[in-house]
Design a protein around this nucleic acid. Structure first.
Length: 721
DNA sequence: AGCACGCCGACT
DNA sequence: GTCGGCGTGCTC
């Protein structure tokens, strides 16, 4: 009896073997979707192991009911990447595959795209001689195929094609679309000397696997180098994948891509409809789209002839999926490139410490761009010691005066504060009551324009109270600053100038963002207030002043990556200043002007900071000098997660080189009504950590309590909360 | 995850 | 007497 292993979209760490009906045996191949009975229902799955002879001990097997695809929906390269990822992240393969498929193709759904290519098999050639004269139609079909492979369906009637497949006399593959000829639009922007050298370095290993860390200050022209390398891939008849942190926020990049590659560019991100995503996915697979630009999940888009992967802003944490299947798209991009033997470029002005460490270790080629294309001087960060200073809504007098001067010169100013809303806390002056979220260990944020109190952790909201719910007092004060408050304060101070706010609250609609960015470029906006959204790759041509309202939050951050993040964010925001001709000034308000790491960043820059942080990490045995995995658990009461993790811990113990900490409540223990806890595993060698997880995770899944709570494995966690 | 089976509390 | 709560077990 022939069996085939099928991956089903279930949270179970195993495959299911089904019996293969005779008439399907010849056609069934890895990567095809099949319909199978499962329990008392029907579901669909993906063939992971092609038909194999059942061993003597084979138990009972139900029959595969039908094929959904004529040819494998998942190309071999992608399927094996998913298998690798399931293994590495210790996540069920069926769920990994579900994450890799666009929603509409997860179940049934026809995947007709491009032309099928039919070829005669060895068995078919052999059968040709022995086929009786009477079966004229079948003979004719076989004869046609024997002459040459055929595209499409017109070469034989459906019945005969079906028979050929069933008997294994023919195979049907997706025929790769012919590459569209790539014509470089002229003239291309001229490269600086430094850019030319970097481009030469990027080309050095040709089209084979190598990782280039393109480490270039903001404005040094990394994007142009991506475009050149992509153009080279296209000219060689290949396709390219460009991963970006958040696509909706980078319309400029989209425009540049469209200008350079025209219709050959397609995007892939959550802002698109299921239909649009499916279209891009299938077009890339068929080879009929040249460049795919997409967010995290685009790392799973199949390609007929992938030739290059670029990860822009590789340090960005949005490449890490934060729930369910917790993969890192940046890391998977490198693995994918390695397995497919392609070059990959990781680009950033502020590379992750992991990437810098890989570059130092010689695993990545480190290519640096230190000069800006348009201005000579990088912006100088000036520290504003605000201790004891009179602050107006968090803004100090010197900063306000700097804004005055900036506006007088007719230039634009940008105020950065990494907090949405009006104020992070509502406090009763009479009794000290603070507005809490009833579902989280957090305060509600005041949103004055909407007249609401909103929890930024679970989304819960209520209307803004007029009196204190605790004592009835009427003096409720907003403590601290958010973007709304800064916006309002500046609008009041500068009534004749236009002040706008840019944060995720304002970005409900894409058209709004476009209009806002257009207004900024046309200098219709004088002051822009916003969160880290501002740091992400926008060019503001006449921006001469950047004010960072406070850097202090990050300095007290509990996570071991807090300072690294702060350095990245401040460097990225500061990089917005002075992009065309003017030098630009950056002011940073802080209560900790002497903080040594803040000093390093300001006086010597991000790379000096990262050098120091790497030393600290080495001394503390933290990543990238060790490897972490976090077991997370949450339940509706406080004890269940800790109890579960205590049991889970037993299964993690006893592996050489792996340290298993005690389970502890998470940084914010209660969130969205759930009590959360975590268990940290640490190992000097990745292989040791992997060995422990491979043994422990299936056992943990079998724990009696495992079904009464939510739990997950987080390999290479982005944060320890 | 579904979807069953199975054994204890308040209802027509 | 039964409707239905969710604990436990299984799915090739």
């Amino acid at each position: 009896m022939l069996l085939s292993s099928i991956a089903l979209d279930l949270p179970l760490p195993r495959l299911f073997d089904y019996a293969v009906p005779e008439h399907l045996a010849a056609q069934l191949r890895r990567g095809m979707r099949v319909r199978v009975p499962f329990g008392r229902r029907q579901t669909s799955g993906i063939v992971v192991r092609a038909p194999f002879e059942a061993g003597a001990d084979a138990g009972e097997h139900r029959l595969i009911e039908a094929l959904i695809d004529d040819s494998p929906l998942l190309p071999a390269e992608l399927l094996s990447l998913c298998e690798w990822a399931a293994d590495y992240y210790h996540h069920p393969l069926g769920e990994v595959l579900a994450a890799a498929l666009p929603g509409s193709l997860k179940r049934e759904g026809s995947a007709e795209s491009g032309e099928p290519l039919w070829q005669l098999s060895e068995a078919g050639r052999a059968a040709l001689a022995g086929l009786p004269e009477r079966q004229r139609a079948l003979r004719a079909a076989l004869q046609t195929l024997a002459e040459q492979p055929r595209r499409g369906k017109a070469w034989a009637p459906a019945a005969q094609r079906q028979t050929l497949l069933e008997r294994g006399w023919a195979r049907c593959e997706l025929a790769p679309a012919a590459p569209a000829p790539y014509l470089a639009p002229l003239p291309l922007p001229e490269l600086t000397e430094e850019q030319s050298q970097a481009l030469a370095a990027l080309q050095e290993n040709g089209e084979h696997f190598h990782v280039s860390l393109l480490d270039g200050v903001t404005g040094s022209g990394k994007t142009e180098l991506y475009l050149r390398r992509i153009a080279q891939a296209l000219a060689a008849g290949r396709q390219a994948l460009l991963l970006v942190p958040e696509i909706g926020l980078t319309p400029q990049l989209q425009t540049q891509l469209a200008q350079r590659f025209g219709e050959g560019v397609a995007s892939f991100h959550s802002g698109l409809s299921a239909r649009e995503r499916e279209k891009t996915w299938l077009a890339a697979r068929a080879g009929s789209v040249a460049v795919v630009v997409g967010t995290r999940s685009a790392v799973f888009v199949p390609f007929a002839r992938l030739g290059l992967i670029v990860v822009d802003e590789e340090h960005d944490t949005s490449f890490k999926q934060q729930d369910g299947f917790r993969y890192s798209a940046r890391d998977l991009a490198v693995v994918r490139a390695q397995r497919a033997q392609l070059p990959v470029i990781l680009g950033s002005a502020t590379p992750a410490l992991e990437s810098l460490h890989n570059a130092r270790a010689g695993r990545y080629r480190h290519i640096r761009l230190t000069r800006r294309v348009q201005t000579q001087a990088p912006p100088q960060i000036r520290v504003l010691d605000v201790r004891g200073q009179q602050l107006q809504h968090g803004l100090s007098e010197p900063l306000l005066l700097a804004i005055d001067r900036c506006l007088e010169k007719g230039e634009q100013a940008l105020l950065f504060i990494n907090r949405r809303g009006y104020a992070p806390l509502l406090l009763c002056h009479a009794c000290g009551w603070r507005a809490p979220c009833t579902h989280c260990d957090a305060q509600l944020t005041v949103h004055r324009t909407r007249g609401r109190l909103i929890c930024h952790h679970c989304g819960w909201q209520q209307s803004l109270p007029r009196e204190c719910p605790s004592c009835g007092g009427s003096e409720l004060i907003s403590v601290g600053q958010g973007t709304e408050r800064i916006e309002q304060a500046l609008a009041n101070r500068y009534p004749r100038h236009r002040v706008e706010r840019l944060d995720s609250d304002r970005l409900s609609q894409r058209s709004e963002l476009d209009a806002l960015l257009a207004d900024i470029r046309a200098r219709r906006i004088d002051i822009l207030v916003g969160t880290q959204i501002l740091a992400k790759g926008h060019d503001f041509p006449s921006l001469s002043l950047v004010g960072i309202v406070s850097a202090d939050q990050a300095l007290y951050g509990a996570d071991f990556r807090a300072i690294e993040r702060m350095g990245q964010m401040l460097t990225q925001v500061a990089g917005r200043a002075g992009r065309s001709g003017q030098a630009g000034e950056v002011w940073l308000q802080t209560h900790e002007p002497e903080h040594p790491l803040l000093r390093t960043l300001i006086d010597k820059g991000y790379h000096a900071l990262s050098d120091e942080l790497l030393l600290e990490r080495q001394a503390a045995c933290l990543p990238p000098y060790s490897h972490l995995a976090l077991l997370r658990a949450e339940a509706q009461d406080a004890q269940t997660p800790l109890r579960f993790l205590t049991q889970a811990r037993e299964h993690c113990l006893g592996f050489a080189g792996v340290q298993v900490m005690e389970p502890i409540p998470s940084g914010m223990e209660r969130r969205a009504g759930y009590w959360r806890a975590q268990l940290l595993l640490q190992a000097a060698q990745r292989s040791e950590l992997h060995r422990a997880l491979a043994a422990a995770v299936p056992q943990i899944a079998e724990l009696p309590g495992a079904r009464r709570l939510r739990w997950s494995v987080d390999v290479d966690p982005a944060d320890l909360f």
